[in-house]
Amino acid sequence: MASLVAKQEEEREGSRGLGNIAFIAVLAVAAAVIFGITRWVGQSYAFFAAYVVVQYIVLGTAWNILGGYTGYVNFGITAFFAIGAYSTVVMYKLTPWMPLPVMVLVGGVLAALVGLGTGYLTLRLRGVFFSIATLALAVVVQTLFTNWDFVGGARGAYVLRPRLAPLIGGEYIQYLFLVMLGLCVIVLATARAIERSALGYGFAAIRDDEAAAEASGVPTLRLKLIATALSGAFMGMAGAPLPYYVAYLDPASGFSLNYAVNAIAMPLIGGTANWVGPVVGAILVGGLQQYISVTISSAVNVLITGLLLVAFVILAPQGIVGLFKRRQP
């Protein structure tokens, strides 16, 4: 059985023949090395900066599972992200003893449910209607949280960040970074496993021609719902540690449009065809942003990201990965 799976993977173009388990191992080692280096640098700023970049890898990959694989554009990233963040605030107030990874999981489940609901109502229609609905979803979720006093309403809520990290010692930001790295490993492994599975082929068929996919037996609505739920879940998970990261969460920071712009721009700049693109995009653009926000300003940040996004979709539709990939023989 294992050899059959391996052969099936080899046949897929561009595959490097690594099994899913082996791939997770490689990712875990990479994550450990990155964590080791950051700890060796030893400044909390390094952790804060690296956290943001890894968070964007997660967000960009999550968006790409729906956007890049099935071709359905989700503009409501902030809605899913903030659901994760605010669910953590609720648990922080009600069940403060809960370990962070559990909170991340709960945030993911809630975001997935919202994705399912929105998708169920709009995914039967042409793709643009789903996109428009997600745009509006971001506004309505923000309205809900702005009016919900329990989580601070418009004023926002303070979240006391523990001083020390559990298990690993050191500052708490190290723990946050570790959790985000772990999430990143899970998301990347999932994205790559999807690409190589029947699910991934079904997604690609939907993206290329939905009517032909149906005629070939692909249950398009069900697959689109799976993609929406998975993508939404990972976005929610990416947002769940945010209250601890910012220590003060208000609608303006939870729904910051930086998340929406980046989650869309990074995959499109890196390349949407497979899991590598969002990673490349997040590291390059995210790194650039960390550099710019230190030296210039954050408004310039969004401007540059927007310009890069527009430039890439016009001039290099296959993204950076596409620029380096050789043409088909």
Binding site: E11, E13, A204, A205, D208, G217
Partner: peptide, 12 residues
Amino acid sequence: FGSLTLAENLRI
């Protein structure tokens, strides 16, 4: 399916 090879087209 434009982004899939011929063999992959039949795989669906």
